[in-house]
Design a protein around this nucleic acid. Structure first.
Length: 343
DNA sequence: TGGATTTGACCCTA
DNA sequence: TAGGGTCAAATCCA
């Protein structure tokens, strides 16, 4: 599907959703359903705008996003939308030695970054999660001046194995503790040799999640990720009817909702090369391989007064959804995002 | 015992 | 020089 077709699709979908919303505004439909429709409308127009921007910024085809934040008609309480900005520019500069590291440091500003804003709703006391299919390893945490919460730093687990220099920062926003801003830096090169979506690494966070919520479904199998990808891709290329995210429905009501505020920050010239850095997995708590929170006991250690900002002490990438108290600061976000949709 | 996390220290940039 | 980003030793956990 070319760009214009996708744009038309998005706009058309938004219109359809608006019509649906109009028809149910006076009905007995649940508040969640209405909200889901509104979210779907916003998402559709948002994506359409992004596509337009892409077209104007270089004539390249924007990443095709499947209905990530589609109206969750089937399960309105579980809504997941993703906002990702495509990366571009030069990154993944391995710096195994001091010299390289210096060079990279100088290029720090030039490295393309893009952000994701994910809102985790716990209206029903549950939460969902998304997965980018990659395995992240936390390598640092820092209190940021003026920030209420600390910032966590993650790098690809295969940094040294595959010289994958992908990194991400997870920062809980001050305004809304339930909103996490994830900044991605660099693209995954490990996908060139190992497809995370195919063989999603078992991240430690998975273990943690399992510890805290035994009712959660097991992490997705690699095959599931692939099949999910296919489904999503199919949705993207099918008619509007298919745009209704049946395939995005969460497997069970045990999932809360995560709203990804897609903010496309094109900090640099878009580059198709970033596509390889995205995981083909999509944001379904049941199928994705990442979790947003760590359930390790350690993660909850830092909740003494001296660690008010440690609510997010650890964020790891796991693939299981887990429940966490809405007002809790003890969960760490691991925000994988499924840019694989863009493929 | 190996892998992941924590956290203080160091480095780099503005 | 301050603040952000990264390193790496210590620690934790399965």
């Amino acid at each position: 599907m070319d760009t214009s077709a996708c744009i038309i699709n998005e706009i058309t979908q938004g219109m359809n959703l608006a019509k649906q919303l109009k028809s149910i505004l006076s009905s007995e439909c649940s508040h969640e359903t209405k909200q889901a429709l509104v979210q779907g409308i916003i998402t559709s127009y948002d994506r359409a705008l992004v596509m337009v921007n892409w077209g104007h910024s270089g004539g390249q085809t924007p990443p095709l996003t499947p209905p990530l934040a589609p109206p969750m008609l089937s399960q309105p309480e579980s809504s997941v939308s993703v906002d990702e900005s495509p990366p571009s520019g030069d990154f993944n500069q391995p710096f195994d030695n001091h010299q390289d590291q210096k060079a990279v440091s100088k290029k720090r500003k030039a490295i393309t970054t893009w952000k994701n804003q994910i809102r985790i709703s716990t209206d029903n006391g549950l939460e969902g999660n998304t997965d980018d299919g990659y395995s992240w390893r936390k390598y640092g945490q820092k209190d940021i001046l003026g920030a209420k919460f600390p910032r966590s730093y993650y790098r690809c687990t295969y940094r040294y194995i595959h010289q994958c220099m992908a990194r991400k920062q997870v920062q809980r926003t001050d305004e809304d503790p339930m909103v996490f801003e994830i900044t991605y830096r660099g693209q995954h090169t490990c996908t060139l040799t190992t497809t995370p979506s195919v063989v999603p690494p078992q991240s430690p966070e998975k273990h943690e999640i399992e510890q805290h919520n035994h009712q959660l479904p097991p992490p997705p199998k690699s095959g599931e990720l692939l099949s999910n990808l296919r489904e999503n891709l199919r949705v993207c290329t099918s008619d509007l009817e298919a745009m209704v995210p049946h395939s995005f429905s969460f497997p069970s009501a045990s999932f809360g909702s995560i709203e990804n505020y897609q903010r496309f920050d094109f900090l640099n010239e878009p580059d198709h090369s970033f596509l390889q850095g995205y995981s083909p997995s999509f944001i379904s708590p049941a199928t994705s391989g990442s979790n947003y929170f760590t359930e390790r006991g350690n993660d909850f250690h830092h909740h003494d007064d001296s660690h008010l900002s440690s609510g997010i002490t650890t964020a790891s990438t796991t693939n299981s959804p887990l429940a966490f108290p809405a007002d809790s600061q003890d969960f760490s976000p691991n925000f994988p995002f499924n840019l694989g949709f863009f493929i």
